[in-house]
Amino acid sequence: MDITLRSIAISFSAVLLAVLWSIPLSLAISRSRTKVSAVIVSIFTSLVGIPTVLIGLVLSTLLSSTGLLGFLNLLYTPYAIIIGQALLITPWLVSLSYDVFFNARNTYWELVISIGADYRTADLIMLRETLPEILVILLLVFSRAIGELGIALIVGGDIEGRTRVLTTAIAAAISKGDFTSAFYLGGILVLVLVSISLMVRLLKVYKE
C-alpha cells in the first residue's frame, strides 16, 4: 500500500511539474504558427520515444555529487524521480496538447477574438473549452510516468520506504526470485493503469 501510494504521489507530482512548463509552452507555440514553432513541435514529437534509462543516466550525472546540480542533494530522493518523470512526459505533454490547442485556435480562440476578447481572455476561454481533452492527456502521461522503470531505478535507487515505487519493487522482487510478490505488485500496477483508462473513457463520454 505504501509503495502504491508513493508511486501515485511521485507520478502525480511529476505530471504537475511537467504541466508548469509544458502547457504554457504549447500554448505559446500554437499561437505563433511560424516555421520555428513547427520545428519545436517536431523536436518534441521525436523526443516522445526517448528511452527512460537515457533520461536516468543524464539526470544522475547532473545530480551526482560531482555533477552540475550536485549541490541540490537530490539524487536517490523522490524529488529526483519526480524531475526525471516530468522530463520523460514533457515531450508527450507538449506535442499532444499542441495538437489540441492548434485545433482550438481555429475554432474557440478565433471565435472569442472575433467577438472582442483580448489574447489573455481568449487563451483562458480556450483552455476552459479544451479542459476535457487536456485532462485526458494528463491521465495518459500519468500512466506513462507511473509505468516507467529506468528513471526510478537510476535516480531513485529503489530505497525501501523512501524511493521504492511499484516498478522498481517489481524489478527487485524478480531479481530475488520472489515471483509471487512481483505478480502481486504487477497486478496493482495494472489496476492503477486500468483505473486511469476508465477515467479517460469517462472524460471522453462527458466531453461528448
Binding site: E110, L111, S114, G116
Partner: peptide
C-alpha cells in the same frame, strides 16, 4: 467589429451564456 463564423461555434454553458459573452467581454 465582429465576425460570425459559417459553422456555428458555441462555447460551454447555456445559450444565454453564449449570447451574453461579448457583452461581458465589454
Amino acid at each position: 467589429i465582429a465576425y460570425v463564423h459559417e459553422k456555428p461555434i458555441l462555447l460551454r454553458g447555456t445559450v444565454v451564456d453564449n449570447v451574453a459573452l461579448p457583452l461581458i467581454l465589454r
